[in-house]
């Protein structure tokens, strides 16, 4: 169940072209002088009066991936750093913004595991050895960034989420880790400020699920682990 890599790679390159270490440089272009910057900032601030940001919670509405299940029992560690993740930011260009991503993470990973693995188990006791599982997956949110339509002048809210995954064997030994950047966007005109930001964040979560489903088996760490299991079985 793998789709052509060229298509996926093209999308991935576009998503990854956003540098998570940089902020959106709309006021840093060379042709904008300091005076102009100030004027622009004043104009932007003035135009944003009444726009005081938004507080949104990502709804826990995720489908189960339609894919061939891997014949493993996967343990999932969904700890508090993931389930209480909230991004709070005060933008210079206007308002206080908050995206509550944590509350959607349990249903998201449960549905993902439901579709991808023969069986799965949420690990409550994190002390190894882990019994009754083939391996344990520990997802974390490394970073979240978003841009508003005012920043990009595109009409879109855009959200990038960097997930970090670590895979452990039954004894609790780390088999390796990897990152994954997901992306979602939504047009402000379609639904208004709060709903558009919420939709962009939800789309980023769906993108994370899609990316995870398609790339899990071919991720080097996972591939090595699965190859080892297959060799052990023969």
């Amino acid at each position: 169940m793998r789709e052509p890599h060229s298509r996926l790679d093209a999308y991935e390159n576009a998503v990854n072209s956003h540098d998570m270490n940089k902020r959106v440089p709309i006021l840093d272009q060379k042709f904008v002088t300091t005076g102009t910057k100030r004027a622009l900032l004043v104009a932007l601030t003035t135009s944003m009066i009444g726009c005081s940001g938004a507080q949104v919670e990502v709804p826990a509405e995720f489908p189960v991936p339609l894919t061939t299940k891997l014949p493993v029992t996967m343990g999932l560690v969904l700890d508090e750093t993931l389930t209480s993740y909230q991004h709070i930011e005060e933008l210079e260009s206007g308002g206080d913004w908050s995206i509550d991503l944590g509350s959607a993470q349990v249903p998201m990973f449960i549905n993902l595991a439901e579709g991808m693995f023969q069986t799965y188990r949420v690990i409550e006791d994190r002390e190894p050895p882990f019994t009754g599982v083939s391996a344990v997956l520990h997802p974390k949110i490394g970073d979240l960034q978003f841009t508003t339509p005012q920043q990009t002048r595109s009409g879109y809210f855009e959200v990038w989420i960097r997930y970090e995954f670590e895979l452990f064997d039954k004894q609790g030994t780390s088999l390796g880790n990897w990152d994954m950047t997901a992306y979602g966007k939504a047009h402000e005109q379609n639904s208004g400020t709060s709903a558009a930001l919420q939709r962009a964040a939800l789309n980023a979560c769906r993108d994370a699920m899609a990316f995870f489903t398609l790339r899990f088996e071919s991720t080097p760490v996972v591939k090595t682990w699965l190859d080892g299991r297959r060799r052990g079985a023969t």
Binding site: E3, L8, Y11
Partner: peptide
């Protein structure tokens, strides 16, 4: 439809 076919018609995966 997108939910029923998830994740094969998402922006990342939809046939072009």
């Amino acid at each position: 439809f997108m939910d029923a076919m998830f994740p094969w018609f998402e922006p990342r995966t939809a046939p072009v």
